[in-house]
């Protein structure tokens, strides 16, 4: 079974060119992609990720709100008792990357990232999460870190 990736547009920014290109890129690379649409909140994103039982979350951030909203997604995951790897893409100043990494983000992709880099970042994040979860589960069961989803 293919790995599942949820891609979300967090916050009030409607510019969806990047996220749609990334969604198609991942789909063409064999991932099952769930796109939740515009104007998502940290809560709605984590709820959807649990319900869809995804292996990774991709967040598109162009508006500059990443330092407020991305850590909120990590916090929301802790509250829900899950740790799904998160990849952030968009306009992220160099200086902000350490803060995102510290918050637990697996990878940050800047403008101009190639399809290979996008796919590599997602694959790397999922592999690392599986190793850290201790399970050597090669595929199918995503490491057991996703519990029985609680519908919101």
């Amino acid at each position: 079974m293919a790995d599942r990736v949820l891609v979300a547009k967090l916050g009030l920014d409607g510019h969806d060119r990047g996220i749609k290109v990334v969604a198609r890129t991942l789909r063409d690379a064999g991932y099952e992609v769930i796109y939740t649409g515009l104007f998502q909140t940290p809560e709605s994103t984590v709820t959807a990720a649990i319900q869809e039982d995804v292996d990774a979350i991709g967040l598109s951030m162009l508006s500059g709100a990443h330092l407020a909203l991305v850590p909120a997604v990590m916090e929301e995951q802790r509250r829900a008792g899950v740790s799904i790897p998160v990849i952030v893409g968009g306009i992220i100043p160099e200086d902000d990357i350490p803060a995102l990494t510290k918050a637990g983000v697996s990878a940050v992709l800047g403008p101009g990232a190639s399809a290979e880099e996008v796919i590599g970042a997602v694959r790397g994040a999922i592999d690392r999460a599986r190793r850290e979860a201790g399970g050597s589960a090669p595929e199918g069961e995503p490491g057991g870190s996703a519990p029985q989803g609680e519908p919101a």
Binding site: L12, D13, G64, A68
Partner: peptide, 22 residues
Amino acid sequence: DMPTLLGVDSDDPRALGEVGRC
């Protein structure tokens, strides 16, 4: 900024992190 473009006030929770950014 994004909250203004969407008719959301700066003190609305949805505006968190977006005020004056773009």
